[in-house]
């Protein structure tokens, strides 16, 4: 499966994996703090680069915190920041919906307020464009790395490569992505 997907990657998206069998890298002792999906992928590639790697985590096994039961999407197509133009107004609406997608607990501390203020500052069209381009770049590269990893190791994880479908219940919702995607 991995090998077939491999060929589906458009030519311009292929990266030269010239340094997988690293030559000239000083071997180091590296400690990775955290065994979520991020710590474990870091450890994997560090080990492949020839380093001596130790991973430390408080849980009895890997991926028992945030990486445990997420929605399962590998979605470069939807890799965009939450901080976007129009979000502050929408956020207010969401909070008062039945089955609200956004819940803001009334207890407000400094860390939360300053983080939210910084998020609001990223809601401009310019900031959104910059942030999105960074996220898409990393997400697309990541999906390609995952394809390579599948081809190389045969790793399986109830994976499917059939795309994602965003479902709209109103005409207004249908119109919005058309505008965003300029189609």
């Amino acid at each position: 499966m991995g090998a077939r997907n491999h060929q589906e990657i458009p030519q311009e998206r292929r990266y030269l994996h010239f340094n997988t069998g690293l030559i000239g890298v000083a071997k180091m002792k590296v400690v990775v703090l955290g065994a979520g999906v991020i710590g474990v992928t870091s450890a994997w590639y560090l080990a492949k680069a020839g380093h001596e790697v130790t991973v430390i985590d408080r849980q009895p096994a890997a991926a028992l915190e945030t990486s445990f039961a997420n929605a399962g999407e590998i979605s470069p197509g939807y890799s965009s920041p939450w901080a976007a133009p129009g979000i502050p107004v929408k956020a207010l609406k969401w909070m008062f919906m039945e089955h609200a997608p956004l819940i803001l607990q009334p207890k407000l501390d400094w860390a939360r307020l300053s983080w939210m203020a910084r998020m609001l500052m990223n809601c401009t069209a310019d900031a959104y464009a910059v942030n999105k381009s960074r996220m898409v770049r990393l997400a697309e590269y990541s999906r390609d790395c995952l394809m390579d990893l599948r081809a190389e190791t045969g790793i399986s994880y109830d994976e499917r490569t059939q795309g994602t479908l965003q479902l709209f219940r109103t005409e207004k919702q249908v119109a919005r992505p058309r505008r965003i995607l300029r189609c």
Partner: peptide, 17 residues
């Protein structure tokens, strides 16, 4: 009312992976 399909996206169990 309609949908938007992104055929390049994938899915899978992050914990199993």
């Amino acid at each position: 009312a309609g949908g938007l399909r992104l055929p390049g996206d994938e899915t899978g169990d992050c914990f199993k992976f």
